[in-house]
Every structure is written in structure tokens, then in C-alpha cells.
Nucleic acid binder design. Structure first.
Lengths: 245, 245
DNA sequence: CCGAAATGTCTATTAATATAGACAACTATA
DNA sequence: TATAGTTGTCTATATTAATAGACATTTCGG
């Protein structure tokens, strides 16, 4: 359990960032729950085998994220410690899924468009390439912290008012219902983890070098006809995906 | 689709590493499939808004991974481009899951031990804390490339010969069968993505800063009694997890 | 066989990262 | 109210990362 906290040099990742990532991990693992504080800078410096100033750079980055707060004379206190558990199942719904974990969830519409379906999207939705589909870009937050950003495609022929309905109802599920689809299930999910790109860093308010989990999913009506192709990028340090089989 | 390839400075992640990660992503996305080559260094430098030497550092890192090979006068060729699709379902089995994607799969036993079950393991296996369990550490490879490393725990009371059987049969499924358990299913899976630690970098032969997907899973016999608690770390740039619901 | 286009190698300079040490400022407690 | 323990700030220096430019070397097509 007490994994050796080692950092490596000349890897293209600055020591202070490696250390910040490791401390963030320790916080979310609950390693410091007894005290509610990060160990003193000198102790951390010894643990990682670096200078105290290097540790200070790491802690400054974490303070910048709002994860910790240093108080002169006392120490560095942990402000926040979250990793929302996010269910992935046939019936995944964003806000429901988070259950009682967040007081408030929000889905914000970033962009909408109607465009001809390209290869992957057309194949997933099983519509001819070039057929019109509606694209919605969303950012979902829990308690004001962005958790994921997503791009969804819906067949325009079947759900022409998807964008308007979503804007009014603030929910994909309700927008489907308003257009005659009472229920839908997930028929396919693929997961990939990678570094966040610049757009994602901004949308999810991540620090550079952060990780996103990209879930490419297809939802279908009860008859199995695809109704939604979506690509959701989760902020990896804020969520844990729970797969219900 | 043509996402803007932007890099950021003063982030603690060297530009050459950010660029290497982006190029690796482009390769696995198939962006360069038409030519089978990476664009010329000058072009990449212009795209990323950096000096040619910085791009060269990135390409050198990728060449070090064996992903590309530069040939003077011709260009930089893509050597390898893989992302194994790995199914996650109630009946996930490592070698079966990879199907025809790899010619050869191998599971190597790194370490074995008998130890008292600690909190999380005991809870997952539903045995009293302190009850003996068998720990097996494995590295799984496909075609000689490490794909994942895992730590599994089995209740010693029920499967006392787990380690020996695995060593002989080279398969968890067969080792279970040899001890009277013909079938088992996955009852729980949790996924988290994070940076690889030093041990994982070595085991999976990753370059520093690489990402792992950590899957914490519980397998149970047909009656629903847990038989295995496992924590598997996948090399994120080599796999795509496919969830069958 | 020439020249365009690509990678390889070298030098020099600037900016960012990391180390080192000293001491000030603040907190909690004996 | 000392004092130990902690964070904050300053200076100085060495190492690494990034930029800039020049030119050599190799490949390939006209």
C-alpha cells in the first residue's frame, strides 16, 4: 500500500508537476485524512528527494487549483477532496447517476449545429453518410465544478427539435421524452484515457498535463435503433467510473 | 475533427513532451494513415508554433518508444500503431478478450504471497479482516508488448492452491477450474485514470508521464460469492476498453 | 545528375527549472 | 512568553529546456 513516491528527472515533466500529481493522488486516496493536512514541506521534500522549493512549487500549483491552502505557521490544509463515482450502465443518466453525491448538477450548452453525418457518427447512428444530424456540445458540472464535456449527435430526421428542447428542458432525457422517446438504453461504450487537449483544459478547468477519460457511447431506443452518438470527456481526477454489468 | 494542436508553456510539462503526446495521439487516430509518415519537422514546428529542434526532441522520444523511425532525406515513418480493444463485461477473460487481435498473449507471474486480508480486499471478498488470502502479481502481454499489470487476491480458505495452479496452467480461469470453480462472473468494476507511478512505468515499459487506467474488479462464483479481488493497470495508450452491457 | 526536400549535427543564446542557504513571519503549545 | 515547528521571501547558482541559425547529409523525382 505504501507505494514508493518516486519522481524521475529529464522526462519532460517538471519535478514540481510530478510531485503535485502525486500529492493530489494521495489526497484523493485519503492518505492524509487523519490530520486533514498535507505533511510539512520539509518532510515532503525528504520523501521525494528534492529541495523544499520544488515542493513549494508543487503545493502552489495545488493551491491554485483550490485543492489545498497553506497557512503560515500552521501548515497546508486540504480544502477539497473529491472523486465522484459515475455509473456506466445500460441506463446511465448524468444527473441521476451522481445520486446524492452532489448538491447541484448542471449541464450547460456550449454550441449547437446541424451538419451532415460523417463516417464514424453515421456508422454509429446507422444513418447514411451525409444525412443531417444535430450536434450538441455540453459541459456538465457538479456543485459548480466541471466534471465532463461532451459532444453528442442525434439524427435530425427523427429528433428535429433536439437542440431547442434541450435548451428549454436542460436535460437530454427530458428532451427525448418531449419528442416521443420515453426510454433509451446504452448499447455500446468505449473508453480511452489520454492527456487533455487545450480546449478540454479550458472547458474542464484542468491544469496542463491532466488526464481525461474519453467515453464514446451509443444510445438506442428500446427497439435497438440508435438515437444518440456521444463522446464524453471526463476529468479523470474528479471521477471514478463504476461499471454495472 | 481537425482539433487545434496547441501546446502551453510554463505548465511543468516540457513542450517536447506535450508535442510527443499529441503526435502519438494523431498516429493512433490514424491522422497520418494516407502517407504512413509523420509530417516533416518544419511543418510540425509551424503547426505547434515551436522551433524545429523542439519537434525533433518530441520525435526522438517517439523513436525511442519504437513508434516512429526517421530516415534522413526521406522523412519520419510510422512503425507501429496499436490500441488493443479490451472488452469489459460479466465474462471478461484476458486472453479470450483479445480475440484475434494479437498473435500471442502471455501472463507472467511476478510475485506471490499469502497475507492477511486488509480492509478494502477483505470487504470486496466478503471475508473477515485478517483472514488469509493469496496475492498474485501478474504482467500480461500481447505479442511481447506489456498491456497490463495486475494484483489479485483470492481467499486462501477456498483456493489454497491458487498460486501453484496458476504457475502450472498459466491462466486464472484454468486455475479456478482446477480447484472446482468452473465458471465465474464479474460483479463489480471501477475505473480510474491517472499517471503511471515508477513501478508501473518499468513493468509496462512506458515513458514517464504516461497514463494508466486502473480497473478495480471483483469476480464471483455463480452464486454471487466473491472469489477474486483484482486491481489491473492498463497502459492507456495501448488499449481501448469496450464495455458490453 | 542536379536540385528540392527532408533529416542530422553543430554552436550560441535565452528562458525555465531546480538546488542551496539564510532569515523573516506566523502558530501553537509547554 | 519563550520556543519549536511551520510557511513566506529573498538572493545566488547550476542544470535543463527552448529558440535561432548555419550547414552537412541523404533521398527522390525530373
Amino acid at each position: 500500500m505504501n507505494a514508493k513516491k518516486a519522481v524521475e528527472r529529464q522526462t519532460g515533466v517538471a519535478l514540481w508537476r510530478q510531485i503535485a500529481d502525486l500529492i493530489r493522488l494521495s489526497i484523493s486516496n485519503g492518505d492524509y485524512d487523519q490530520t486533514g493536512m498535507v505533511p510539512p514541506e520539509i518532510v515532503l521534500a525528504a520523501q521525494f528527494g528534492v529541495n523544499r522549493h520544488t515542493v513549494r512549487s508543487a503545493l502552489a500549483a495545488l493551491a491554485d487549483e483550490g485543492l489545498v491552502q497553506a497557512i503560515q505557521g500552521r501548515g497546508t490544509m486540504i480544502q477539497r477532496k473529491e472523486r465522484l463515482s459515475f455509473p456506466i450502465s445500460r441506463r446511465t443518466r448524468f444527473s441521476q447517476g451522481l445520486g446524492g453525491q452532489a448538491r447541484e448538477t448542471e449541464a450547460k450548452l456550449l454550441a449547437r449545429a446541424v451538419l451532415p453525418a460523417a463516417g464514424e457518427v453515421a456508422a454509429g447512428l446507422r444513418i447514411p453518410p451525409g444525412a443531417p444530424c444535430i450536434q450538441l456540445d455540453l459541459v456538465s458540472s457538479a456543485d459548480g465544478r466541471p466534471v465532463s464535456c461532451s459532444t453528442s449527435f442525434f439524427p435530425e430526421g427523427r429528433f428535429p427539435a433536439m437542440a431547442e428542447q434541450f435548451e428549454e428542458l436542460r436535460s437530454i432525457t427530458k428532451a427525448f421524452a418531449a419528442q416521443g422517446l420515453a426510454d433509451y438504453v446504452r448499447i455500446s461504450t468505449e473508453l480511452v484515457a489520454r492527456h487533455a487537449d487545450t480546449a478540454e483544459l479550458a472547458l474542464l478547468r484542468l491544469s496542463p498535463g491532466a488526464i481525461v477519460i474519453e467515453a464514446t457511447a451509443i444510445n438506442a431506443d428500446p427497439e435497438g435503433v440508435p438515437v444518440q452518438f456521444s463522446r464524453t470527456r471526463f476529468a479523470a481526477d474528479r471521477v471514478k467510473l463504476k461499471i454495472d454489468t
